[in-house]
């Protein structure tokens, strides 16, 4: 692995909420103006810090949803009802509020583009967020890298970025999106109606001879299962990058 240069400290900076997008009943995107933002790679995350008026603080990490090319920095947050930070970000925050953050963070679960290897992206729930940054980066950079997103949600209403994914996959530049809905399907649903399994991966995955780059992000049991199936299918474990989150946090 190449040794990266040591950068200076990632300082806390203030972003201003320019736009709030309610993506699903439980998920919202915060689109932020961050004047001193230094740029990021698709797949990285930021730390967010909230401070109460008595000085009490809470920090959490959130994946960046926007492309490096975008003018503003977007994070997408799922509200966890017993959480500490997410109910504030999804519910309390209003336009023009300021949010303290630092980043970008993480140099491994990133896709830079400029690579002919096809992409296989596998998402569960809000695990789609860093993968969406990659898809947006792919589109913004006019990449035609063959890309498949396999995306598992509970119901149609829980699909984050649905309209944008529909539009991007209709553009005909090599992006395919396969949805699966695990709990509830609308009448006439033509996608998958079960949890992601090996048969599904065999249907959507690129042949291993094409040496795809694979990113998997979602709840731990889903990521463990998918990564295990991909190894069983013969993909090089080193080509499978994972990011996991549990039900805790907030």
């Amino acid at each position: 692995m190449a040794r990266a240069a040591v950068l200076g400290r990632l300082n806390w900076q203030l972003g201003s909420v320019a736009e709030l997008v309610q993506e699903t009943p439980r998920v919202a995107s915060l689109v932020l103006d961050v004047p001193e933002w230094q740029g990021h790679l698709a797949g990285q995350h930021v730390d967010v810090r909230l401070t109460a008026d008595d000085g009490y603080q809470a920090e959490r990490s959130y994946s960046i949803a926007s492309a490096p090319e975008d003018q503003r920095l977007a994070i997408t947050v799922e509200r966890l009802d017993d959480g500490e930070v997410s109910p504030y970000l999804v519910g309390e925050v209003r336009k023009s509020d300021k949010i303290e953050l630092r980043g970008p963070i993480g140099g491994y679960f990133v896709w830079k583009g400029g690579d002919d290897r096809p992409l296989l992206l596998v998402a569960g729930g809000s695990g789609v967020v860093p993968l969406m940054a990659m898809i947006r980066h792919r589109s913004a950079s006019k990449s035609t890298t063959p890309t498949t997103l396999l995306y598992s949600s509970r119901s149609e209403d829980d699909i984050i970025y649905k309209a944008e994914l529909d539009a991007l996959s209709a553009a005909g530049d090599g992006l395919t999106v396969a949805h699966c809905l695990t709990r509830m399907q609308p009448p006439g649903w033509r996608g998958y109606s079960r949890r992601i399994d090996r048969a599904m991966l065999e249907e959507v995955a690129w042949p291993k001879q094409q040496n795809p780059i694979i990113f998997v992000c979602g709840p731990t049991p889903m990521v463990e299962g998918v990564a295990g199936h991909l190894v069983d299918m013969g993909f090089d474990p080193a080509s499978i990058k994972t990011e996991r989150f549990g039900p805790t946090g907030g």
């Binding site: 731990t220 463990e224 991909l230 190894v231 474990p237 994972t242 996991r244 549990g246």
Partner: peptide, 9 residues
């Protein structure tokens, strides 16, 4: 919670 960068060996 579980955090790992790749498949479980």
């Amino acid at each position: 919670p579980v955090l790992s960068a790749g498949p479980t060996p």
